[in-house]
Design a protein around this nucleic acid. Sequence first.
DNA 1: GTGGCTGCAAATCATTTGCATATAC
DNA 2: GTATATGCAAATGATTTGCAGCCAC
Lengths: 132, 132
Amino acid sequence: MITNKLKKASLKSTFQREKILEYIISRKEHPTADMIYRYMLTLSPCISKTTVYNTVKSLTKTNLIKSVKFLGQDEIRYDGTVDTHHHFVCEKCGKIYDIEVLCQNFNKKEINEHKINNVYAYFTGICKECKK
Amino acid sequence: MITNKLKKASLKSTFQREKILEYIISRKEHPTADMIYRYMLTLSPCISKTTVYNTVKSLTKTNLIKSVKFLGQDEIRYDGTVDTHHHFVCEKCGKIYDIEVLCQNFNKKEINEHKINNVYAYFTGICKECKK
DNA sequence: GTGGCTGCAAATCATTTGCATATAC
DNA sequence: GTATATGCAAATGATTTGCAGCCAC
């Protein structure tokens, strides 16, 4: 659970960190810093955007969350699912869906003599909701 | 050739556009706006960064180039190869290499009922130069 | 001749930084 | 008690915008 995750990552357990991490993990919205900030405002009128940025940086460094960046969106998004997976981004509504992409190349440790550490892949298009 | 490409895209042929498009296509550096700007300065002391931004926007809209965005890099990069291909980004030197990623899923027109228009995929790690 | 380009200066906006205060352990 | 977090205000830096003059066609 949340407190343990922080402890394991050697991060001090604070109200802000608990709530921010819980929010990113439990909702599947891949929120931006601003979305996290606005959520935190509903819990406490006193929360700083700097703290949001500090927190997501700590959480990312300790691998409790991942950050992702998409073309056509200015803001970095945060993802509570740290296992390898990929995304679909709707060009109309901006919503982000998790998807599975099976590809043997994604498991390679090396391509063209370059050592591979991470794989990022995403599709863009029109989501099933916006197609209606 | 460059002039024809502009003509076909219904873009007026100007010195700035010719040189910027030629630079992006001929070198394989996936340059940033700033790299393009610094290159243009070597050709003429009078070039505006606004023009660089205006130009890459026109070129992208008309599909003469593509733009790409990578985690860990603040700037948008421009790519003169418009055919589908993918990238490797070195975490150390920031250099970008074109790579081939064969994956049947990349040809799908639909995933989980979402209509797919584009696929973006890139690997990060340590490039063969930096491994030495 | 005119609509589309260029380029200056100023604005925008996400993110970062410096630093003083507060708090988890 | 101390190292680490929080949060304010100010800075940064890529990109955008408004607008005047210029030039390709």
